[in-house]
């Protein structure tokens, strides 16, 4: 008998259809899931209603007749305080900011991480410590001096200025990510490449980067969601005509002009959240790995 009991504990748990603890666990989890899913549901149903119908029902009621009019309006004609060409402008602005920011920040951070993992020079660790501390400094402390620096080099208000800002503030977490990844690779590989006569850049490009696909993907996930979701830097460092999507969205929804069109607002909100949501659902476990690896991110 004792033998049998031991086997139970090791193997898969016997499936009991209904126990009190299980009931409590699943009920709690389901209630929590409702809390988490309700806003998504509300956004979607609201965005599919006509305005009169929104005024008639409550946020949870299903649309009587489904309309995609709000989505079209949110994308193409919704008004911010300044113009009426909808979120499309913000979307393309965000894309223009996102692509170079992701590429530049990952390029710089991978080189940093590589130098820190394999080519430590005197003072390298101090720089890295400062970098990590920098991740916790409230952005507000550094915002204005950076405005001045960007103005001095002629990039204030320019998309490239914002690209640099994103690369700077993405640097601590990404550098940590790459440093840890490179440190986990066998050091003998690096030594072998040096004996084979490869230099600093050749080792990085020919030997290490080709085996870094997993960490590059994690970094891309981290940066795409982070930069897409940015609001603060977008507001401070770009001009209204090149505002990213989040800023544009906020201006559309919270503009005080005219009657509030909740259905359009919700369609716009979903549209803005769509890119990070798609990244999240597609990447799955890698997203979790990204935030776990980058638990230092402030």
């Amino acid at each position: 008998m004792a033998d049998l009991a031991f086997k139970d504990a090791c193997g898969p748990r016997p499936k009991k259809a209904f126990t009190l603890p299980n009931f409590i666990i699943y009920t709690t989890l389901t209630l929590l899931a409702i809390y988490y899913l309700a806003p998504l549901y509300v956004m979607i149903v609201t965005s599919l209603k006509t305005m009169p119908e929104v005024r008639l029902g409550n946020v949870f009621s299903l649309p009587q007749e489904v309309t995609i009019e709000p989505w079209i309006k949110a994308w193409a004609t919704a008004c911010t305080g300044l113009n009426c060409d909808g979120l499309s402008r913000g979307f393309w602005n965000s894309v223009q900011i996102l692509v170079p920011s992701v590429v530049l920040s990952i390029a710089v951070a991978s080189v940093n991480g590589y130098a820190l993992a394999f080519w430590r020079f005197k003072g390298a660790n101090l720089l890295f410590t400062i970098l990590l501390f920098g991740a916790f400094i409230p952005y507000q402390v550094m915002l204005y001096p950076i405005v001045m620096i960007l103005r001095d080099i002629g990039l204030y208000g320019d998309v490239w200025g914002l690209v640099i800002v994103h690369s700077i503030f993405g640097m601590p977490i990404l550098t940590l990510l790459f440093r840890n990844y490179f440190s986990s690779l066998p050091e003998e590989l690096f030594k072998a490449a040096r004996v084979d006569g490869a230099g600093f850049w050749r080792i990085l490009i020919r030997v290490l980067l080709p085996m870094s696909a997993p960490i590059v993907v994690v970094a891309i996930i981290l940066q795409v969601t982070g930069i897409w979701n940015d609001f603060l830097f977008g507001v401070v460092y770009t001009r209204p005509e090149s505002y990213p999507m989040t800023v544009q969205l906020n201006n559309i929804v919270n503009s005080t002009f005219g009657e509030k069109e909740y259905n359009v607002n919700m369609a716009a909100t979903i549209l803005t959240g769509l890119v990070p949501l798609v990244v999240y659902f597609v990447s799955g476990k890698l997203f979790v790995r990204g935030i776990a690896a980058g638990a230092v991110k402030g």
């Binding site: 003998e188 590989l189 072998a192 004996v195 084979d196 490869a198 020919r206």
Partner: peptide
């Protein structure tokens, strides 16, 4: 290291995983 006229063999082999055997041999 590469100018010293030495060759080195490591415990973990340290083969470049993305290169073929031929690539590994010819990299240096």
């Amino acid at each position: 290291p590469s100018q010293r006229g030495i060759g080195m063999v490591f415990q973990s082999y340290a083969l470049y995983p993305q290169m073929s055997v031929e690539g590994n041999l010819s990299f240096g």
